[in-house]
Design a protein around this nucleic acid. Structure first.
Lengths: 130, 130
DNA sequence: TACTTGCTTGGAGTGCACTCAAGGGTTCTA
DNA sequence: TAGAACCCTTGAGTGCACTCCAAGCAAGTA
């Protein structure tokens, strides 16, 4: 193997390694794949999953989407659109933009609730905010 | 009735009025009462609910707690503590303070997810943020 | 080789927060 | 006074996002 051809074999992770890295349970990881939220994961010769770094990146992004409160159905939709290729570009952007607006609304709502909470806690003579 | 005794009769709301004001369904309002999240609501002579302004205030506060993501079980706990009186003061404060910390964490998480979303949308050549 | 640990599948089960149904009584309007 | 609109209760059903189960195959270690 020449120098230019030299590269690390792609790192491959078992499902329990991915569980440890992402905090997602093995159950959830398999379920994600079943419902189409995860592109089909590579298998070992004996059929066991071998996740790639790309898979981990995707899971990380999915984690962000999940944090936004996006429904699993919408995340699956997004994943489908990705698989379908370039002509779904616009719809993907719209989906993300809609989600962004939702997040902003949630942020405002949370900030408001936090104020009320602060007020109440002040009433209880609670710890001053650090 | 003398002037000093004069006062408006307390306003009383039917369940559909409360539904219109709070956005909570009649089902949900009855359910809140059933599970102890709502102090027992006054009844008309024929047994129909007549909500007071105090009830609306409480529902408004419950709405804020719900917006924080507090579980219904915890909200019920808080309502119970209120009913139990002064000696539950500390536990109530703790419950609210714990919730406040949760809210702050959620805010940070959401802000982070928003950044990722902004980055992605930028990649899609989406609308500039206003 | 025997044992332990880890992985596979499809389908069933769980917990939460509602949401609806059935069957019947009450109140308002024409 | 009839009909429409509203309200009551208990108990069952729904949708979401997991979470677990059973039965069995595979890999690594003493």
């Amino acid at each position: 193997m020449s120098l230019t051809e030299t590269r690390l074999a792609e790192t491959r992770y078992t499902i329990s390694e991915v569980e440890a890295r992402t905090g997602l349970s093995q159950h959830t990881l398999r379920w994600y794949e079943r419902i189409g939220l995860m592109p089909h994961v590579d298998r070992s010769h004996s059929g066991q999953r071998r996740f790639s770094d790309k898979d981990l990146d995707w899971l990380s992004f999915v984690g962000k989407l999940r944090a936004t409160g996006m429904s699993v159905a919408d995340m699956v939709r997004y994943a489908e659109l990705l698989r379908e290729g370039d002509h779904t570009f616009d719809e993907r952007r719209e989906l993300l933009e809609r989600t962004r607006e939702d997040v902003k609304a949630r942020l405002a709502e949370l900030a408001d609730a936090l104020q009320v909470l602060d007020y109440k806690i002040g009433f209880y003579g609670g710890k001053a905010r650090p």
